[in-house]
Every structure is written in structure tokens, then in C-alpha cells.
Write a protein that binds this DNA or RNA. Structure first.
Length: 314
DNA sequence: AAGACGCTCAACCGCTGGCCC
DNA sequence: AGGGCCAGCGGTTGAGCGTCT
């Protein structure tokens, strides 16, 4: 018998009477205590040594997705949603890769978010989640709207912080967290941003890229930037190397996203938006209420998107 | 009140690639 | 070189819960 724990292979699952299904509190405590003492790794032997009648796989999953102390619980934030949408547009279903850029979130959680929220909307629109139409809708409607909501929330919090030190501290912590996420992203990509925005730079980068026509021909003009193909480093460099205009203090007006001419310029897709459609009159979002991106899929937007998809399919 | 339905998410399954012997 | 084991990944399932009718 070698030191790699091959003793586990000598026992069938039946012989070990392995448990399946939901974990009990006792099992959780056993696993936590064992890892606290001995550390992670060698999951099959860990399961045996800890006296858990679980497969190593099951132990690993329970630990990584639930018991790990740095696992973040709670709703996916707007910033996280934006990041997920963006990263998924670049890497496709590479959940673990995407999860690397959302500290504390697991690949399982992101995958579930995608399947339950994003794919649901695609289904409602009767289109494939991987179709160009849906991806366009995501990038040109959903994501810009997320940016707007994030900025609105930041503005509201900043205003409140004038009178509340605690709120100020909290906001700073939030910003620092986002900065950390984004800096981590840049660091991993080996990209040096030329002129970092002052505020939430990840969000700001969206604003700047969409306000920079020159850039539209690179990162945004083609459906190639969606797809499931793995993005190259140069793709990302293009994405972040947006010439920073005079507006580097994150005060760009998100409403610009909704101007048809600009969007057509960006997409290079004539007819994507109906001529004369006043996007600014489409304000389905309630900035004061709710926190869910689901708000986007209200009657007006659904109608508009369905119309677009129908036209596109004809 | 209760059954149907839909949603969420923890957990499982099957596969793959890497490592070790 | 080839077999066996392991960790990790993406896809899928199903229990639990809330909402609707």
C-alpha cells in the first residue's frame, strides 16, 4: 500500500456504506474540525481519517462550496452581476475561472446564478442564451443598466455619507472591495491601466468604453467578443485600454447608453434598435426599489426585445 | 386549505487531465 | 508506456420553500 491513500480503492462504496444527501450539523463540525487540525487535501483519505462516511468528492464539495470560512453568503451584488455577465461573455461556461474574480463566490454559486437568472430570461424571450440576439440584449441593455444602477447606488451612498461617518466608512470598504476585485483582475491579466478612474473603476471602464467610438470597433463591434471562445489577453487589453477622456471621474451619464445613434454606432448592427425609439423614455427600472436585475425584464423591455428578436428571426 | 407550480441552491454525476507508480 | 488514483470542472438533479390558483 502506498502513501497516496490507495487503501480507499480497496473498499467499495457499498462496503463503506457511504452517506449521501444533505450534510448534518455533526458531519459539518467533523469536517471543519478535521480541516482546522490537519488542513485540506487528499480528500479521500481525509474523509476516511475524519471518520466521515462520505466520498472525498463530497467532502471537498461541502468544504469548498459551503463550509470554507471565506465563502460569501447572500445575494449576488450588482457589481458581481456585472462582472459575471462580462466574464461569461468572454469565457463562456468557465465557472471556476469566472469565480476566481469574485472573491468568496464559488463556481457553483455563479453557475446557479447563471442558470436560474440569466437562462430564465433567455427562455422567457424564447431565444437561446448563447444566441447573438440575447447576448446583444445583455450587453446593450442589461449591462449598461446595471452600470447605471451601480452608479446611482454609489451616488446615493456618497450623499448619505456626508452626514454619516459610518456610512462613509462602509462605502469606502465597499469601494475598496470592488477595487480589490478589479485590481486582481488586471493583475491576473498582466494589464496596466493607463489612467485609473477615481471611483469604481470596473464600472467606470464600461462607461468609458461605451463612450469611446474608437474603441467600439475593437471590443464591441463584433459578436466575436461574445461567444464561448476563450478570450485572448489582447482582447482584454483592448477592453481596458480605453483612452480616458476628460471624464475620468466617473461622472459619465449612463443615459447616453440609450441613445439609438450611439448604440448603432457601437454595435454596427443597423436596425438593432428601431428607428426613432426614444430609449430615455424607456425607464423601466425603479432605482429606489429592489436590488434584483430581474427588474429589467418588465413589460416594456420584454415587448421591445421580443419585437427585436422576431424581426431578427424573419 | 391544499394541491400545483416555479424557483433556488446544495449536492451528485460523469468526465477529463495530471500525477504517481 | 500504461494503469490507477485524485482533484477539479461543467452539467444535472432533487429537496425545500414560497407563491399561485
Amino acid at each position: 500500500m502506498d502513501e497516496k491513500g490507495r487503501t480507499t480503492s480497496l473498499l467499495s462504496e457499498d462496503e463503506m456504506e457511504l452517506r449521501r444527501g444533505p450534510w448534518t450539523v455533526d458531519e459539518d463540525l467533523t469536517l471543519i474540525n478535521y480541516i482546522a487540525t490537519h488542513g485540506e487535501g487528499r480528500w479521500n483519505t481525509l474523509a476516511l481519517s475524519a471518520g466521515l462516511k462520505r466520498t472525498g468528492k463530497s467532502c471537498r464539495l461541502r468544504w469548498l462550496n459551503y463550509l470554507r470560512p471565506d465563502v460569501r453568503r447572500g445575494n449576488i451584488t450588482l457589481e458581481e452581476q456585472l462582472l459575471i455577465l462580462e466574464l461569461h461573455s468572454r469565457w463562456g461556461n468557465r465557472w471556476s475561472k469566472i469565480a476566481q474574480y469574485l472573491p468568496g463566490r464559488t463556481d457553483n454559486e455563479i453557475k446557479n446564478y447563471w442558470r436560474t437568472r440569466v437562462q430564465k430570461h433567455a427562455k422567457q424571450l424564447k431565444c437561446d442564451v448563447n444566441s447573438k440576439q440575447f447576448k446583444d440584449a445583455m450587453r446593450y441593455l442589461w449591462m449598461p443598466r446595471l452600470v447605471e444602477r451601480i452608479q446611482a447606488a454609489a451616488t446615493a451612498t456618497a450623499t448619505a455619507s456626508v452626514t454619516t461617518n459610518d456610512a462613509y466608512t462602509s462605502e469606502n470598504n465597499l469601494k475598496n472591495n470592488h477595487m480589490e476585485v478589479h485590481n486582481n483582475l488586471k493583475e491576473k491579466m498582466g494589464f496596466i491601466e493607463p489612467s485609473p478612474p477615481m471611483n469604481n473603476d470596473f464600472v467606470a471602464s464600461y462607461v468609458m468604453q461605451s463612450h469611446t467610438p474608437d474603441n467600439s470597433s475593437t471590443a464591441l463591434s463584433s459578436s466575436d467578443s461574445f461567444g464561448t471562445q476563450v478570450s485572448t489577453k489582447s482582447d482584454l487589453t483592448d477592453y481596458y485600454s480605453v483612452p480616458v477622456s476628460s471624464n475620468n471621474n466617473n461622472t459619465a451619464t449612463p443615459a447616453d447608453y440609450y441613445q439609438p445613434s450611439q448604440i448603432n454606432c457601437i454595435t454596427g448592427t443597423p436596425g438593432f434598435f428601431p428607428p426613432g425609439l426614444d430609449f430615455q423614455s424607456l425607464d423601466p427600472w425603479n432605482l429606489q426599489n429592489g436590488d434584483s436585475s430581474d427588474n429589467f425584464w418588465n413589460v416594456e423591455n420584454m415587448f421591445f426585445l421580443e419585437q427585436h428578436l422576431m424581426n431578427d428571426n424573419m
